Simulated assay, not measured.
Amino acid sequence: MTTLRLRPEGPADAGPVRRVIAAAFARPDVGFPGEVRLVDELRGSEAWLPELAMVAEYGGEVVGYALLTRVRVRTGTGFAPALALGPVAVAPHRQRTGHGTNVVQAALDAATELGERLVVVLGDPAYYRRFGFTRADRMGLTSPWSGLGEPWQALVLPPATSEPEPVPAGEVIFPPPWSKV
């Protein structure tokens, strides 16, 4: 019986991850997906957190990917750390099998274990609601995508300690590679 293995991305996974993202985001009218370039550029940036780049492997093949990278929230008193989820990709031949849900949950669980408190995402509300994401604007979070309404979402992760840090509100600042998406 073949099982799904969820783990952080390793150095040998860059090629398979690129193929999964390219296949999942393929659009005949666009050419090479910007999501592939985004991941490539994030890998070399300060936003990259290798333990939060999660791979779903099925039968020895990389079939899914979920990436959390560092963003900052500009509050009234400075900056607070947060994470951005994306891209999330599943190889077309393995979509609708639960691999996407599993790899996203694995990334969120890893972030919780590291004591992270806030994750933002731009995506389908019907999909991300299953993880607990809600409208980010209702949490006082803004971004270049705030005007999109419901797709701009945030999730407060469970606290790692009994005295959690407060959840920040303000403008979410994304690292430069995001401006090209």
Results as ranks from 00 to 15, higher is better:
Arg72Asn: 08
Pro158Tyr: 06
Val63Arg: 05
Met1Ser: 15
Ala56Val: 04
Ala91Val: 00
Pro168Val: 15
Ala24Phe: 01
Ile21Trp: 00
Val156Gln: 13
Pro159Trp: 01
Glu46Phe: 00
Ala26Gly: 11
Gln105Asn: 07
Leu42His: 09
Leu141His: 03
Pro168Arg: 15
Glu163Thr: 15
Val20Asp: 00
Gly60Leu: 01
Leu68Val: 07
Arg94His: 10
Leu122Lys: 10
Thr134Leu: 11
Val88Cys: 03
Glu165Ile: 03
Pro175Gly: 10
Arg135Lys: 08
Thr112Tyr: 04
Thr101Asp: 09
Arg135Ile: 02
Val167Met: 04
Val120Thr: 15
Phe133Lys: 04
Arg43Pro: 07
Leu83Gln: 10
Pro33Ser: 05
Thr161Asn: 06
Ala12Arg: 15
Thr75Trp: 03
Thr3Tyr: 00
Arg138Thr: 12
Pro28Glu: 11
Gly44Asp: 06
Arg135Glu: 15
Glu150Leu: 13
Val36Gly: 00
Ala12Phe: 02
Gly64Leu: 05
Val39Glu: 02
Val71Tyr: 06
Pro50Asp: 01
Ser162Gly: 13
Gly59His: 07
Leu108Gln: 07
Thr101Phe: 14
Phe133Asp: 08
Leu6Trp: 03
Val90Trp: 00
Gly123Trp: 04
Gly132Val: 12
Arg138Ala: 15
Pro125Glu: 13
Tyr65Ile: 01
Pro166Tyr: 05
Arg7Asp: 04
Asp137Met: 06
Gln95Glu: 03
His99Leu: 06
Ala169Phe: 05
Leu148Glu: 13
Thr2Arg: 05
Trp145Leu: 03
Leu42Val: 15
Ser143Tyr: 05
Arg74Thr: 12
Pro8Cys: 05
Gln95Asn: 09
Gly78Lys: 09
Val88Asn: 00
Trp152Asp: 05
Arg70Gln: 15
Ala111Leu: 08
Arg5His: 09
Asp137Phe: 12
Asp40Pro: 01
Glu35Ile: 02
Arg72Asp: 08
Ala22His: 00
Ala26Asn: 06
Val90Arg: 00
Asp13Trp: 02
Ala160Lys: 10
Gly140Asn: 06
Thr97Lys: 08
Ser143Glu: 05
Gly60Cys: 05
Ala47Asn: 03
Lys180Trp: 07
Ala154Pro: 00
Val103Leu: 05
Thr69Val: 06
Pro81His: 14
Pro16Thr: 13
Gly44Thr: 14
Val39Ser: 03
Phe133His: 05
Ala154Gln: 05
Ser162Met: 12
Leu122Arg: 05
Ala154Ile: 09
Ser179Pro: 00
Glu116Asn: 11
Ile173Asp: 11
Leu122Phe: 15
Ile173Ser: 12
Phe133Thr: 09
Gln95Pro: 00
Arg18Asp: 14
Gly86His: 09
Phe174Ala: 10
Ala84Asn: 11
Leu42Asp: 00
Ala136Pro: 13
Trp178Lys: 12
Gly149Glu: 09
Gln153Glu: 13
Val17Leu: 08
Ala53Glu: 06
Val120Lys: 08
Glu165Pro: 15
Val39Gln: 02
Arg94Cys: 07
Ala84Ser: 14
Thr77Ile: 06
Gly147Trp: 07
Gly170Met: 10
Ala106Gly: 06
Phe131Cys: 14
Arg5Val: 14
Gly15Trp: 08
Phe79Gln: 15
Ala106Gln: 09
Thr77Arg: 07
Gly31Thr: 02
Ile21Cys: 01
Arg74Gly: 04
Glu35Pro: 09
Arg18Gly: 02
Pro175Thr: 07
Gly98Tyr: 02
Ala47Ile: 01
His93Gln: 13
Pro144Ala: 15
Leu114Ile: 04
